[in-house]
């Protein structure tokens, strides 16, 4: 049966998740709740409305969303839409449909593989010239593994390179559906200590580390990333443990380790969903933090792991 996916964004001309110029599909649904997550709209699998309050032209001049909402779930402040009572909201999207100003955004859209391929084909020439292709990310794309599998098979049929950016917090049986059709694998190592991992992401790290090891065991190369979060995973002990794991368990299969310095990202999306931003209190001195991250990169390189700061693969 042809698969459908729930996709919350298709970004053309991306240059960060995989080589060359790419089209990236962001899939909805994620089992993790990382505190620093920049895509909170990806957490839930189902389609939801989000509110961009600065775009509301006011209840007085419009009021169409309130009229359309069957559950009285919309919240106004000083005449402008500011949020949705998620307890009352049934995600029927009537507010989105009538809103004339993009103040209500639809997070997530059901799309067939054929529909996705139509979008993907639009930039074929760019992939060919730049060594780029398609990346699926999320959320956690493996939550929709049947869809991703079929999508990647369709890409393969048209010689389009595929890249899967995943947490790999998934059952091996799900991974196996996608892996044979995946050219490039990108994943994170967020922390080596499972308890701390669980504290900051909501899940332990055992399944993830085991899966990465299995992938390496299948002789597959991968790009790994560490989101470097101050006072969470940037201590010497964890860094050393991460390097040990990579060398011992993943062998020579890490083609590049990318360090992504913590940035306050996606705050406006948290606001649109009415979810509190948990990194609110974290303040970073950009200059000294960047120096610190550079030192971590130097350490990995000294251990023989090709490591760069940012989403690059070449210096």
């Amino acid at each position: 049966m042809p698969q459908k996916g729930i996709i919350f964004n298709i970004q053309r001309f991306t240059i960060h998740d995989g080589p060359g110029l790419r089209t990236e599909l962001f899939l909805k649904g994620c089992p993790l709740r990382c505190e620093w997550c920049s895509n909170p709209e990806s957490w839930l699998t189902h389609i939801q409305p989000g509110v961009y309050k600065t775009k509301c032209i006011s209840h007085k001049k419009c009021g169409m969303c309130e009229e359309a909402c069957p559950n009285d779930a919309l919240q106004f402040y000083r005449g402008k839409l500011i949020g949705i009572d998620r307890g009352k909201c049934t995600n029927c999207l009537e507010c989105y449909k009538v809103c004339p100003s993009d103040a209500v955004k639809q997070w997530g859209k059901e799309m067939s593989v054929a529909e996705c391929m139509k979008e993907i084909r639009k930039d074929l020439g760019y992939y060919e010239r730049s060594g780029g292709g398609v990346t699926v990310s999320g959320g956690e794309p493996l939550m929709q593994s049947d869809f991703v599998s079929e999508l990647f098979q369709a890409c393969r049929a048209e010689n389009i390179q595929t890249c899967c950016e995943s947490t790999f917090h998934a059952e091996w049986s799900e991974i196996e559906k996608v892996l044979p059709y995946t050219d490039i694998i990108i994943s994170d190592i967020k922390h080596m200590n499972s308890e701390i991992h669980k504290k900051h992401t909501g899940v332990g790290n055992e399944l993830i580390l085991e899966n990465l090891k299995k992938i390496a065991g299948k002789d597959r190369e991968m790009i790994l990333r560490i989101p470097v979060i101050p006072n969470v995973n940037d201590d010497e002990e964890n860094i050393r443990a991460t390097a040990d794991y990579m060398l011992k368990e993943l062998g020579g299969h890490v083609r590049t380790l990318q360090l992504l310095s913590f940035m306050r990202l996606g705050e406006e999306k948290y606001a649109s969903l009415g979810i509190p931003y948990r990194m609110e209190a974290v303040k970073v001195n950009r200059k000294s933090f960047q120096k610190h991250v550079n030192e971590i990169a130097a350490y990995f390189n000294s251990r023989g792991i090709h490591c760069l700061v940012g989403t690059k693969e070449k210096q």
């Binding site: 970004q11 960060h16 920049s38 895509n39 306050r264 996606g266 705050e267 406006e268 989403t311």
Partner: peptide, 17 residues
């Protein structure tokens, strides 16, 4: 502006970012 994981319109981002 390409922020990191996503692209956004510069003027729509918060001042600190």
């Amino acid at each position: 502006v390409r922020v990191a994981g996503y692209s956004a319109y510069f003027v729509e981002l918060g001042k600190p970012l």
